[in-house]
Simulated assay, not measured.
Amino acid sequence: MGELKIIYQDDHYVAIDKPAGRLVHRTRISEDTQFVLQQLRDQIGRRVYPVHRLDRPTSGVLVFGLDSDAARRLVGLFEQRLVSKRYLAVVRGFICESDRIDYPLQEEEGRPLQQAVTSYRRLATVELPFAVGRYSTARYSLVEVTPETGRMHQIRKHMKHIFHPIVGDTTHGDGKHNQLFRDEFGVYRLLLMASDIGFIHPYSGTLLSLQSCPDSEITELFDRLGWGSECLD
């Protein structure tokens, strides 16, 4: 396990490029013994405070406060929806060019439904000569996703709701298409990446724009799908 890639650090915040498949912190439902929060603390030699979350299988920009006040201030911006978030996802099928999904979600069983809104824009498509189910070919879209709210598994659930599940999603996805990507491309991960986060720095007042860089597995996959680097900009 190599060091976490730090993409930004100042006196108040540190942001990393979270690897896919890593839990941020300890949870009762997992027997994992290694966590991003613990590793980052050991790596930089100081305590870090979670500000927001990324699902275990999701990679990309993840920000921590370096003290409790810094974390509280940034959490407040998230709660006021003053933080811009941009994701990239590979979904099943040819999705329409753009849309806004306004579909309430239930974060936990027994809890009330909560407003959940996600906008998206199609960046590229590909049709592969592989039979999946009753179709002779397999179609996929690369999508830029901007969640306006922050519900648990929101993007994954919303893509499933519109019948364009994210490739590699073993909970809300399509097993046949997940298997195709394992067999043909050797890709076992969820193809959802938190690519950008932007907010006004609570202390300096300047606009902070943080970006992750696709790893070699993603860039190689996109090359094989015919999606050039312009799709990642």
Rank of each mutant, 00 (worst) to 15 (best):
R46C: 14
C213L: 12
P50W: 11
Q43C: 06
Q34F: 10
I218A: 06
R73L: 15
D99M: 04
I166S: 02
F35P: 12
G150D: 09
D196C: 09
R100W: 02
A70I: 11
I44V: 14
S229N: 02
F163H: 13
T219A: 04
S68F: 04
A89D: 06
G205R: 06
S212Q: 08
R156Q: 00
R28E: 13
P57Q: 08
R73D: 11
P147G: 02
G173D: 10
M1K: 07
F222M: 11
H161V: 01
I16M: 07
I95D: 00
I16W: 08
T149G: 05
E79S: 11
Q154H: 02
H201M: 04
G2A: 07
T33A: 11
E217S: 14
E184L: 05
A20N: 10
R22Q: 14
L191V: 12
E148W: 01
F199G: 04
L190Q: 02
L180E: 10
I44R: 08
V83D: 08
V143G: 03
R224T: 06
E184Y: 02
S212V: 09
A70L: 08
Q211C: 06
L54Q: 10
R28F: 09
D17S: 15
L210W: 01
S84L: 07
V61R: 14
M159C: 09
V145H: 06
G186F: 08
Q39V: 13
A138L: 12
E144P: 01
I162W: 07
V90T: 04
L210F: 01
M159E: 01
P147Y: 06
D183P: 00
L66T: 05
G60L: 09
V14Q: 03
P202T: 04
P165D: 11
G150T: 03
F163C: 13
R26M: 08
Q115H: 05
K85G: 11
S136Q: 13
Y8C: 04
P165I: 02
L128C: 08
V36T: 12
V61A: 14
R189T: 03
P129Y: 01
D233A: 12
